[in-house]
């Protein structure tokens, strides 16, 4: 009995989450605003896939999608590479006092509210002539993700037993070799976690992308979507199709990698 009540409550909550998507899906296939307004709950009378064609053409979603994708990948890869190397140096190499200092220094970045840096960073981006280039996003994205990434990777690397390294050192491996041949392969789980965490963060970032880019063909998906809304805010059917374009790929990837994604995103937070 109790179990059924639990299921009912949970199903209600799931409904709250899913209904907006269904609504948008239906709206995206309806003929026009009138059909949406007069029959919001109804299944579309006939399927108007042309909304998708128009949204794709009007919103340049293909371009935005590609931009978002490769900016997110590159920034995440930089964070991953730098983060792994630095974590290795901090946890495995024998410069204990120096490492303590740098570790604290880097972790200090965790308490800086990055939103507050938007205005000062704008000036820096301009001075470095990065404005309206994708580097204006890649560098800040990569940097802002470093503290938490290093925190996670360090926690893992610290726990690697030193016997492994010792054995390898007898085989004549240097510090660099230890890193690439021994420590990195072992550390793949946290690295994947960190990659997913950062990729999603970068993929979803809006404000910096909004202010640091100008050209239309450089825009990222969130910025493009908001621009699309501003331009076509009275055409709900097309707007809905646009939303579907930006949501569905993420949902597909999520359905495949859900375990890893949940692990990745939550890992970033457990640092209290």
């Amino acid at each position: 009995m109790k179990k059924i009540l639990s299921h009912i409550i949970l199903m209600l909550y799931i409904l709250i989450i899913i209904i907006p998507f269904i609504f948008v899906l239906f709206s995206s296939l309806k003929e026009n605003n009138i059909e949406i307004v007069t029959d919001p709950w109804g299944i579309p009378s006939s399927l108007h896939f042309d909304n998708y064609v128009m949204a794709w053409n009007n919103a340049k979603i293909g371009t935005y999608f590609f931009n978002s994708f490769y900016i997110s990948v590159i920034a995440s890869v930089i964070t991953l590479g730098f983060g792994a190397a630095t974590s290795y140096a901090l946890t495995r190499m024998k410069f204990i006092n120096l490492s303590k200092f740098f570790y604290t220094f880097i972790l200090f970045g965790l308490v800086i509210p990055t939103g507050s840096l938007l205005v000062p960073l704008y000036k820096l981006i301009t001075d470095l002539h990065l404005y309206n280039t994708h580097l204006a996003l890649i560098f800040p994205y990569a940097t802002f993700a470093l503290p938490v990434s290093i925190y996670i990777i360090c926690a893992f690397m610290r726990a690697i037993p030193s016997e492994l390294e010792e054995a390898a050192m007898i085989d004549g491996l240097g510090a660099l070799g230890l890193f690439t041949r021994i420590v990195l392969p072992i550390s793949i789980p946290p690295l994947v976690t960190v990659f997913i965490l950062n990729f999603l963060g970068n993929w979803n970032e809006f404000v910096m992308a909004n202010f640091y880019l100008s050209s239309e063909n450089l825009r990222t998906l969130p910025v493009g979507m908001v621009g699309f809304r501003d331009a076509f805010n009275t055409n709900y059917a097309q707007l809905s199709a646009g939303i579907m374009f930006s949501v569905v790929p993420v949902l597909i990837i999520y359905s495949i990698l859900q375990e890893k994604i949940i692990e990745g995103v939550t890992a970033g937070s457990v640092k209290g």
């Binding site: 930089i78 991953l80 590479g81 190397a85 990195l184 392969p185 690295l191």
Partner: peptide, 17 residues
Amino acid sequence: MKKILLILMMVTFVSSI
């Protein structure tokens, strides 16, 4: 997997230079 990571590392270090 190892190789991919190695490549990633190379990429990042080259860009760091």
